[in-house]
Design a protein around this nucleic acid. Structure first.
Length: 488
RNA sequence: GGCCCCAUGGUCAAGCGGCCUAAGACACCGCCCUUUCACGGCGGUAACCCGGGUUCGAAUCCCGGUGGGGUCACCA
């Protein structure tokens, strides 16, 4: 069998959608798994809605996810150009061919006329489709209509009484009656091809062997197959993957919350978490393991383990995966990623030096286990950058205990000995010594200490808290806490 | 409404005729760890849409129903 070639062909009408990202991922994985090629092509034939900005956004989202492509937009290749609006002459050629062979014809019906007709069909309970009014127009008719100033579209002549059978890798055999289709438009009146036509020409010319895409395209597939056949081209393999649904089980849309890769990126989700999550939505590895890198996925992915039924997007599971990756990545990386969020929260200056970077690292050591996504640092890191308020009743109660001043004096003494060498190990030994030396239970030492440092009775480990705050700040907070609770 | 797809716990899903008194994960609950919370470990609650067939035997195959979804554009 010849080399596998797949593609992701987004239309640049908005940011990369979760569903689009999964399609891209599946294609990429399939190519990598079987040593094939992955192409990215831009389907921008909708002139009104397409934009270069969206195109850029989509490409950068793909790169961010780690999905690179062997051929296509921005990287070039032997089958370019890879933007459909730059291939108009190619579509013209094949539309002309179809016209010549009598497999397509010009239609002069106006959009208004068509709308009226559609209404009538709907009202009569009939199938909504083009009636074929212009099918047998004579050249003279055409000339007359053009003189009236009408701009024709080109319609594909759907064979009557035919059946198109699609062999879909995930769905099996699916049949469609041609009679339900109506002659569909392949070239719009402005000369731009429609999706159903351009996609076929491009997929064929680019040598695509497998079309892996979302299920919403399934009902378009017979129209495309008809075009392959009429042009004498071989039909690629199809694999229609079920849709990703929102919580209410309808197609994912903005009202379901964040739907673009960009949004998740901005909230501080890691690309590997998104990739891992998306891979598991609609595909199953068949083993109990759930954590996979892109690389591992590309070794295991196969279309025969793609699930047929639609999948509900489960944010809870994404959060779990993301928190997993936050906890298991090198903390330096997490700290680096957290910086913009900390800046946005107003905790950090615009420019970061090594001292700040180290502080952030210590903060992230302390709090990363609390995070589902990085934007949550705003609440969890506050204690490291803002003075505690000491208005929590529980904390106040703890700080008011009689042994507290003595405990703090002891801590202070130890800190002055330790000075700048307050790393995690030093903090641990220091913390261990205090109760012993004072002859107090741990609870009487640690709870007030925590309350003084954070203004609360719960939070990160003390041995993480101490290094992240630093000796000076710890001492200052000890004093502040006593002053604030009026015990001093 | 026509056409098409789908149907295992709340969610993702394993299962492809006997191994199922149905895996695993998320979420939830409980216990343990921890002189905090969380993390982590252990355990628990919870599912084969309904009705007919086929078969010695069906979550698995077939038919019907029901439910959900997609699609019916000069959008992709």
């Amino acid at each position: 069998m010849s080399e596998i070639k797949v593609r992701f062909a987004p239309s640049p009408t908005g940011p990369l959608h979760i569903g689009g990202a999964r399609s891209a991922l599946f294609n990429w994985l399939y190519a990598r798994r079987y040593g094939g090629k992955f192409i990215v092509r831009i389907e921008d034939t909708d002139l009104d809605r397409s934009s270069r900005e969206s195109e850029e956004n989509i490409l950068s989202a793909l790169r961010w996810l780690g999905l690179d492509w062997d051929e296509g937009i921005a990287v070039g290749g032997p089958n370019g150009p890879y933007r459909q609006t730059e291939r108009l002459d190619i579509y013209d050629r094949y539309a002309g061919l179809l016209l010549e062979k009598g497999l397509a014809y010009r239609c002069y019906c106006s959009e208004e006329e068509l709308a009226v007709q559609r209404e009538a069909q709907l009202a009569a309970g009939e199938m909504v489709r083009y009636t074929g009014k212009c099918r047998d127009l004579s050249p003279e008719d055409c000339e007359r209509l053009e003189r009236e100033g009408r701009k024709p579209v080109i319609r594909f002549k759907v064979p009557e009484g035919g059946v198109v059978t699609i062999r879909d890798i995930v769905r099996g055999e699916v049949n469609f009656d041609c009679d339900g289709m109506g002659d569909y438009i392949i070239v719009k009146s402005d000369g731009i091809p429609t999706y159903n036509f351009a996609v076929v020409v491009d997929d064929h010319l680019m040598g695509i062997t497998h079309v892996i895409r979302a299920e919403e395209h399934l009902s378009n597939t017979p129209r495309q197959v008809l075009i392959y056949q009429s042009l004498g081209w071989s039909v690629p393999e199809f694999a229609h993957v079920s849709l990703i649904l929102g919580k209410d089980r309808s197609k994912m849309s903005k009202r379901h919350g964040a739907t673009s890769i960009e949004q998740y990126r901005e909230l501080g989700y890691l690309p590997e978490a998104l990739v891992n999550f998306l891979a598991l939505l609609g595909w199953s590895p068949g083993v109990e393991e759930e954590i996979f890198t892109l690389e591992q996925l590309s070794e295991q992915f196969s279309l025969d383990r793609v699930v047929k039924s639609p999948a509900v997007f489960d944010l809870e599971k994404l959060n779990w995966l993301n928190s997993h990756y936050i906890k298991h990545s090198p903390v330096e990386r997490i700290a680096e990623l957290a910086i913009p969020f900390l800046q946005q929260a107003g905790y950090l200056p615009g420019t970061i030096d090594d001292r700040v970077r180290e502080k952030v690292r210590l903060v992230m050591v302390a709090i990363r286990e609390y995070l589902e996504y990085l934007a949550q640092v705003e609440q969890h890191a506050a204690v490291f950058f803002r003075q505690p308020e000491y208005n929590d009743p529980e904390a106040r109660e703890v700080l008011a205990r009689e042994e507290v001043p003595a405990v703090f004096r002891a801590v202070r003494g130890k800190l002055e000995e330790t000075g700048d060498q307050l790393d995690e190990a030093a903090a641990k030994t220091l913390l261990k010594k205090i109760p012993k030396e004072l002859g107090l239970g741990g609870k009487k030492v640690y709870l007030p200490l925590r309350a003084a440092l954070t203004g609360r009775t719960r939070g990160p480990e003390l041995h993480h808290l101490l290094p992240a705050l630093g000796s000076r700040e710890v001492i200052a907070r000890l004093d502040n806490a006593l002053a604030a609770t009026g015990v001093n």
